[in-house]
Design a protein around this nucleic acid. Structure first.
Lengths: 145, 145
DNA sequence: TTATATGCAAATCCTTTGCCGTCGA
DNA sequence: TCGACGGCAAAGGATTTGCATATAA
């Protein structure tokens, strides 16, 4: 990830190196606060403002992707070559990445049929584990949305 | 919409009636500020806090749907029986609603294949009008996401 | 009458910014 | 060297909340 920064011509400071490293080493989807927390372990003097600024710089350089799951704060993941979407386990908050070409094609088609060229999309699925479901026979199987 | 409020057992105050009316009469997807602006025309003394509280109450009663398009503020629309998604025209900000059964089915399938029961989803497509495109031959046709 | 709702202002949360000293290329 | 960067604290926007008063049922 640090290499990517250099390739994009970003000035590599100690703080940026740390943020890059934190993001490289997590497979999670941390929010800014979490990145700050992890970065602080490597450099106790780093400031939250720097974290926010760095995240923004990385995002603008295209090496970082900003995600919003609708809980008011942004989350980040390193930009992937391969596009993917997210399924959020609503019981644990776990985030699962997935790819589905059919879905992409369908989205293109829908946009096109509406008279648009698709330039982007955001999609999150929310689900409950089927396993847990089986054991704990739940009542509501109706209210989808 | 007011009827819905009563059905759900909500106390109908003057302010709630006004917010309900504002939401009933718009086919738009207003944010809280916009609802407040419109409501203020009918009752110049209504407070923004009341608007926020009312929007929340309506949402919790299931007669209102909260949308987030990733620009930091929530938008609202009356809850539809029929589920639909949104395409945002990135050139004008216009919001187009659409339904697509294939898409719903595919989402169910994806979740299921990952070991989850789908309990919800959020999806927005972002697009540029094909017409405008043709006239203004644009450069970037690469960077999808 | 009495629990609920409203108005107002202050508070909260997440994020950005101004200013000035510091550091990377 | 010198412009870009980081730290700090203050500002910002969206949304929520405490408290006293007003109001629906």
């Amino acid at each position: 990830m640090e290499r990517l920064c250099i390739e994009r011509g970003l000035r590599m400071t100690g703080q940026r190196r740390i943020v890059a490293r934190v993001l490289s080493e997590t497979n999670d989807h941390p929010d800014a606060e979490e990145v700050y927390r992890l970065a602080s372990k490597l450099d106790p003097k780093i400031s939250i403002a720097t974290v926010y600024r760095t995240l923004r710089v990385f995002e603008e350089a295209g090496i970082l992707q900003r995600l919003e799951f609708g809980d008011g704060r942004a989350r980040f993941e390193r930009a992937a070559i391969e596009h993917h979407d997210h399924l959020i386990d609503t019981s644990s908050g776990k985030v699962i990445e997935f790819q589905n070409v059919q879905l992409e094609d369908l989205q293109e088609k829908i946009a096109h049929d509406l008279g648009y060229r698709l330039v982007g999309h955001r999609m999150e699925l929310f689900g409950l584990p089927l396993a847990a479901e089986a054991s704990a026979g739940d009542k509501d199987s109706g209210g989808e949305c």
